[in-house]
């Protein structure tokens, strides 16, 4: 295979698409605003990439088993609220509350599998429950994030901005666990061919519980990292994360069904989404269009993917 053939190979194009979109967006930003090309500039632009990447990974776990989570944004809001109140006041109570949140997520996975329910309806309902609990815990924006979370999120690393290191660590850890372990392959198989996995003796119920709990765990991490940046919380702090997380997975090359996901891609997708905000600001485009631009990027990437797919045959 010549180099040209290798580059135009649909499979290569497909897997290169997330990184390419990120690189294109980043170079456009550097072109428009050269001052962004610095330690400080990158740090500022990618600050919120960590919580968004964590929420995206959470969504990816759910998409792996062919479900969709419309409640992750509200859930991140809830865990942020718990982090800024219960966890800050009394670490033991706070940790227990967060553990209960993860367990609740696992239970929802079990319920969805047990009754064969559509995940969209269940999670949409649950988003109201999470929001309701968050509003009760934290009726008005406020609270304070624990000092140790602030310390972690404010870490100054020489040469490479912290968000980039954190994103890389998240991507590599999840990539290894989900893509390079035998249990990870089973988990993905439950999305690709649930019947085969079941016949091979695995419990689909257990797999759903594991995946939903993992999503809950990353949702907790997302909420905590978010208050590390904002130092206060609000029940509505992460409402947009539901959309971000879905878009992030898709931008990162994840398929909607069939267990075809990519943790590294998902994190890159999250970074790309985070950058769109800065890009629009540099272009002096009204923030009104921020959410629209994210939709447009999503559509463009999906269009490119459809083109590549057509060539795949």
């Amino acid at each position: 295979m010549t180099i040209m053939e290798r580059i135009t190979n649909p499979r290569f194009l497909r897997s290169a698409l997330p990184l390419a979109s990120f690189a294109v967006l980043l170079s456009l930003i550097f072109y428009v605003q050269p001052r962004a090309m610095s330690y400080f500039g990158l740090n500022l632009m990618l600050q919120y990439a960590v919580p968004i990447a964590l929420a995206t990974i959470a969504q990816m776990f759910i998409l792996t088993v062919n479900d969709l989570d419309l409640s992750i944004g509200a859930f991140v809001g809830l865990t942020a609220s718990i982090g800024a109140t219960l966890l800050a006041d009394n670490p033991v109570v706070g940790v227990c509350a967060l553990a209960a949140c993860v367990a609740a997520y696992g239970a929802i996975g079990a319920l969805i599998h047990w009754r064969n329910l559509p995940s969209i309806v269940v999670t949409l309902g649950m988003s109201f429950v999470w929001l309701g609990i968050a509003v009760i815990i934290l009726p008005t924006p406020g609270g304070t994030s624990p000092a140790w979370i602030k310390a972690i999120m404010g870490l100054k690393v020489p040469y490479i901005p912290f968000p980039i290191i954190a994103a890389a660590v998240i991507a590599i850890v999840v990539q290894v666990l989900l893509m390079h372990t035998s249990y990870g392959a089973t988990l993905r198989g439950a999305g690709g061919n649930p019947r085969a996995i079941e016949r091979a003796g695995w419990s689909l119920l257990k797999i759903k519980i594991v995946m939903y709990s993992a999503a809950g765990f990353f949702g907790v991490l997302s909420g905590l990292s978010l208050i590390g940046l904002t130092s206060a919380a609000d029940a509505h702090i992460a409402d947009r994360y539901t959309l971000y997380s879905i878009a992030g997975v898709i931008l990162g090359g994840g398929e909607f069904v069939g267990g075809r996901v990519s943790p590294v891609g998902a994190v890159i997708g999250a970074l790309t989404l985070t950058l769109t905000g800065s890009f629009l600001i540099f272009l002096k485009i009204s923030p009104d269009w921020q959410i629209g631009a994210q939709g447009a990027i999503l559509i463009v990437v999906l269009a490119l993917r459809a083109l590549i797919k057509r060539r795949e045959g």
């Binding site: 309902g125 649950m126 988003s127 109201f128 429950v129 999470w130 929001l131 309701g132 609990i133 968050a134 509003v135 009760i136 009726p139």
Partner: peptide, 8 residues
Amino acid sequence: GVRLIMTG
């Protein structure tokens, strides 16, 4: 908060 929880 309770209204939201009940609706969900």
